[in-house]
């Protein structure tokens, strides 16, 4: 059975998406991508700084990588739309991760502005993957607006605290008919596996890999964890004892059932 992830018709061979921020050295990135098996890689756009020596980040990404530029830096829908258009014009492809954050303390996304950005960008043919705070109504609106997937946070960016929003993510997985990709907050491979066991379509990991002592090994671990979690989900959970002692029987009255025809 083919379990390949499909996003807007594109086959994505790995359910681990990789963020490329916070790495000590761009040279790590191709090794991390290889070790993890990731196919979708996020990048960001920034204004150049006259003073800093410039490197072409794209040269570090292997052929066949699906680029997902994010709109980080945008505080409003208008800014996100602008960045998305620039990225596409620059040859980054149709995919865009919408990230609209005006909260500098927790880096929590603005669902409201995100919905507005999706409405415009989806009409322009972008494959939009919005980063959002797990809220069912907001996710429905994002789906209606034309999002190709929904990316709820597991915990605030960079906190590595794991799947704190588990219950709400579960609701999204049940109710929204789009791939649900847990993005942000996953700190350990087991947490990525946990998200996959719930039924997430994929996970996006950045900080946990970039800041590990051995990013390449951590990338490999996450790659394996995502596969394990997915298989665990597909295999179906075993029977677990949910009830302790049976309290007084509830269907005993049927036991000596003289069939009473109504």
């Amino acid at each position: 059975m083919d379990d390949t992830l499909l996003i807007r018709g594109t086959r994505v061979e790995s359910r681990l998406f990789l963020g490329t921020g916070k790495f000590a050295d761009y040279n790590l990135i191709p090794r991390v991508i290889k070790a993890s098996g990731a196919k979708v890689v996020t990048v960001a756009l920034r204004r150049v700084d006259y003073a800093t020596p410039e490197e072409n980040m794209l040269q570090y990404l292997p052929e066949g990588t699906i680029l997902m530029p994010n709109t980080s830096g945008a505080r409003t829908a208008a800014e996100a739309i602008r960045i998305a258009r620039i990225a596409r014009e620059a040859g980054c492809g149709d995919w865009v991760k919408i990230e609209v954050i005006s909260d500098q303390k927790y880096l929590l996304p603005d669902n409201f502005e995100t919905i507005k950005a999706i409405e415009v960008l989806a009409r322009e043919g972008f494959v939009v993957l919005p980063y959002m705070s797990p809220d069912l109504m907001a996710a429905k609106r994002m789906a209606d607006a034309g999002a190709a997937a929904i990316m709820p946070l597991g915990a605030p960016i960079g906190t590595n605290r794991g799947l704190k929003t588990r219950e709400l993510v579960q609701v999204l997985i049940s109710e929204i008919n789009l791939p649900i990709i847990v993005d942000a907050g996953l700190g350990r491979p087991s947490e990525a596996a946990e998200a996959m066991e719930l039924g997430a379509a994929a996970v996006l990991v950045n900080t946990a890999i970039a800041t590990a002592d051995d990013p390449v090994l951590m990338a490999e671990a996450f790659g394996l964890a995502v596969q394990a979690g997915r298989k665990g989900y597909l295999a179906g959970p075993g029977a677990t004892q949910r009830f302790a002692e049976a309290s007084s029987p509830l269907t005993g009255f049927l036991r000596n059932e003289a069939e009473v025809t109504p």
Partner: peptide, 10 residues
């Protein structure tokens, strides 16, 4: 003018 480049990001 906006002169931008692609950098690593999450």
């Amino acid at each position: 003018l906006d002169i931008v480049r692609i950098i690593g990001g999450g």
